[in-house]
Design a protein around this nucleic acid. Structure first.
Lengths: 112, 112
DNA sequence: CTGTTATATCGCAATATTACGATGAATTTC
DNA sequence: GAAATTCATCGTAATATTGCGATATAACAG
């Protein structure tokens, strides 16, 4: 199929999955790391930084922008991308809250 | 294409992306939430819990098991699944460390 | 031993993702 | 203005993901 049955799940579960999907590519991880690290803010010398074609980088940037994790502003000829502070905070808070849970100290051998 | 150019990225970036991909489906989020919540530990009444076919649930469980996030033990006729404590800890630590970063307080308007 | 139950896997169909060349729009440079 | 630069988008090809029915295997129940 390739289509997820989102109807079956809670809004929170779908949101978490959607955010995780945004991080589910090394290029997008690399972009976010680059933007998180660079105090000089952003722009698409990302094309040089990553080894991908310009069209591909643009596509990844769009995904991150659609998720609200980054934002871009036009500066004449070029685009400046940077982390979207609120979007990033919200997303990472949600994911961290999910990931921060610890399992009960029960083993699999426990009968159900 | 559909294939990621993992060669271009660091091992850490690929690992983070692989873990995120594991979480990139609401059914897998739901499975993990269920296993994290249930002190009774596991097993595949997950098929009833989620609204998906048995084959589909089994497939999602396999993905989570391959990532080391859960583990399963055979108990006679049935499988008992539960969170893999070390695997879950390692994975969540890696992701939380990445997500915990804050952007520099620079705006996109900063020239690069 | 036979039938039932629980689960993994195979094979397939539908859809999504990834990657890139080509093209177009906007802007700068000369 | 003409050429060059920067970037988004379109179209397309290759591969991945999702979902499920069917089937195989193993264990249990009678």
């Amino acid at each position: 199929m390739g289509i997820s049955k989102t109807i079956l799940f809670t809004a929170e579960q779908n949101t978490l999955a959607r955010l995780a999907k945004g991080l589910a590519h090394p290029a997008r991880i690399a972009i976010l790391e680059y933007l998180l690290d660079s105090n000089t803010c952003c722009n698409s010398n990302l094309v040089a930084e990553l080894g991908l074609a310009q069209a591909t980088v643009s596509q990844h940037l769009r995904e991150l922008k659609d998720l609200g994790l980054i934002q871009g502003t036009i500066s004449g000829n070029t685009m400046n991308y940077c982390i979207h502070p609120e979007g990033w905070r919200e997303a990472s808070d949600l994911l961290i809250h999910f990931l921060g849970r610890s399992p009960f100290p029960s083993t699999c051998s426990t009968t159900c």
